[in-house]
Structures are given as structure tokens and as C-alpha cells.
Design a protein around this nucleic acid. Sequence first.
DNA 1: GAGCATTATGATGCTCAGATCATACTGCGG
DNA 2: CCGCAGTATGATCTGAGCATCATAATGCTC
Lengths: 83, 83
Amino acid sequence: MKHLVRTSKNLGHAIREARKAKNLTQKELASMSGVWQETISKIENGSGGAKLETVFDLIAALELEITVTERSKGTSDGLEDIF
Amino acid sequence: MKHLVRTSKNLGHAIREARKAKNLTQKELASMSGVWQETISKIENGSGGAKLETVFDLIAALELEITVTERSKGTSDGLEDIF
DNA sequence: GAGCATTATGATGCTCAGATCATACTGCGG
DNA sequence: CCGCAGTATGATCTGAGCATCATAATGCTC
């Protein structure tokens, strides 16, 4: 699954889905990533600007990857899961 | 061009390239995005965890998009510009 | 190399994220 | 219901990002 991310909320959503897909609890992710469970909760709910570093820690622990590309002009090129 | 991003430094690099590709100065980007030129400089040089919001502001102004996907197991699937 | 444009660095004050602990809320199984 | 696992919320404190201004360093062009 591919997540187009434009806001903190989007990112939080993507992270939550990835975590659930791996059947991890916030607490487990916390000990894996070094980020506190409380902080993960806030980030997943998109509660305001987290720090980049923190997000990268989570991304790494969840074995996700982030790519930056030029915005596809034709709105959606079809398959992304935009939310 | 597609940038695989794992660290703040990567992101900064991607942002700088995108800015240059659009022939914008940091100052111009600053007034477009509402982020200070000094802050842009720091972010482009990957000087520590910027805030997500700030980065999203730049991403939006540069008409880039961020996608989050599962990490491709087979190292590189070939074409990304990893740095 | 002078001079201007661009980018980097330094200092300060405010604001807020994150660490930390405690606790409240929300399912869900029994 | 009750209790437990999971998640969210609240408070405090510390540290760091960002706005802001000033200035230094760098890069170009002539």
C-alpha cells in the first residue's frame, strides 16, 4: 500500500496502518523505536508538528520508506491511497 | 526524479534540489512558503530535526509530494536516487 | 577584485515537542 | 459487569525549533 502524505495527520494515519499491519501495539513500537508510547499516540492522531527525527525513527522501525517526488500534475495517477 | 529519504539530511538535499530545479532562491521559497530563509538553509543542510509542519510547508510550496510505502526488501528496485 | 546576490551562522526570546509519570478512557473477553 | 490490554490525556520540565534581526561567508558577474 502506498500513502500519499501531505499533512501530519496523513502521516500519522499511515504510521498507524503500518503498525496495525504488523500487529504491533504502540507500546511495542515504542520499545522498538525509542519513541514513547504517548508520543506515538499523539503522532498517529496528527496532533501537531512532531519532529522529523522522531518520525524517521518510527518509519525505520516499521520498515517503511519515504520518497519525495514531483507532484503528479494530473491529480491522482490512479492508485495511491490518499487520505 | 525520485528521492528516497531516510534522514533529515536526505530530505534537505531533496528540497534543495527541487528548489534549484525551479530556479528559486531560499528567499523566494521563504516568502512562498512562510518559512524563514534562515530556517530553510538549516533544513537544506539537514541540521537536526526540523518540525514536520515546516517541512510540509516547503514540500507544498515546491509542489513536491511525499509517499510512504513498505520498504522494498530487495534493496533498491533500481531507479531511486538514494543519497 | 569590487560589488551585489545568495546562503550560512550567531544570538535571543517564545513556543512547543518529547521524556516521564500518572491516570483516564475504550474496547473486549469471560 | 469486571478487569485487563491498548490507547489517549494531562502535568511538569527540559531542550530545541523557529521567528527575527544582524552579520558573516560564499558565489557570481563584470
